[in-house]
Amino acid sequence: MTAIMPALLSPGLSAFTASRQDGPLQAERTNLAPGMFLDADPALQMAGRYSSAAGAFLDLHAAPSGRGGWFGLHLALELPPLQEISYLGLACRAAAPEQLMLRPCLRTGLEGGGFSDCFFDRHILAAGRAHSHTDALYLDSRPELPLSAPWHELVLFLPCQAFDLSLMHLHLFAL
C-alpha cells in the first residue's frame, strides 16, 4: 500500500495554506484558492470574514442573516481511480468559542451531472479548547461510492447559524 502525498490530493489546499489572506464572506460563494471555496445556500444571506494567518489554516467568522440549508468548505481532490486506494482520510485541529459540529463528506461527481455524497463516520467537534480529529473512509465498505467519477471534493459542512471557528490544520491522506 502506497500513501499519496497530501499536496497531490488537493493543490488548492496547498496553495491556500502557503498564502496569507483575509476577506469578506460572499453571500453564496467565496473563492479562497483554485479548487477551494466556501459555498453557502443563497437563503442564508451569508456575511462575515475569513482569514488565514501564521499558525492557523482558516479562521471563519460567519454571520448569516437568513435561514438556509447548507454552508460548506469545498476542496477539489485529485484522486487516482478509487479502486487503487483503500482509505481516504483527513486530520484536522479545530477550536471554537461555542461548541460546533462539522460534517466531513466525500462528494463524487456523477457521469451526466449531479453528485453523490458519502459522509465520514465521525463528526468533527470544535470546542473552546483546541483538539485534533482524524477519520478515514474505508472505501471498500462504501458500495454507494461510484468507482469512476469525473471529479471528487472533500466538503466540510459547517453550521448554518452565526459562529466563529479556527481550523488550525487540515491535512488529507489516501492509502
Rank of each mutant, 00 (worst) to 15 (best):
P150Q: 05
L75S: 07
H61M: 10
C105H: 07
H61I: 10
L100H: 01
Y138A: 11
A136R: 15
G89E: 00
A54P: 02
P143T: 06
P81T: 02
R67Q: 08
S86T: 13
C92K: 08
L106F: 09
G55M: 01
A33P: 03
L44M: 04
R142L: 15
M46N: 05
P42Q: 01
A40H: 09
L38H: 05
E84L: 14
L90N: 05
A63R: 00
P42V: 04
G113F: 09
L90A: 08
Q83V: 13
S86G: 14
A126Y: 07
R129W: 11
L145S: 02
D39G: 08
L82K: 02
F37E: 14
R129D: 11
R93E: 13
R107H: 10
L82D: 02
P150R: 07
Q45Y: 06
L88S: 03
R142A: 11
F115M: 12
Y50L: 00
L82N: 02
A126F: 09
G55F: 00
P64E: 04
T108P: 02
L137I: 09
L147W: 15
L100P: 03
F115A: 15
R142Q: 15
L147R: 15
L58F: 02
H133A: 06
D39N: 12
S132G: 14
L58G: 04
M46T: 01
A130E: 14
L60S: 02
E144D: 15
H152N: 04
L73M: 04
F57I: 02
R67D: 08
P42K: 03
A130S: 14
L90T: 02
A95Q: 13
A127M: 12
P34F: 04
D121G: 12
A33H: 04
P97F: 05
T108D: 08
G89T: 01
D117N: 12
L125C: 13
L44W: 04
A43K: 05
H131P: 03
P97C: 06
F37V: 08
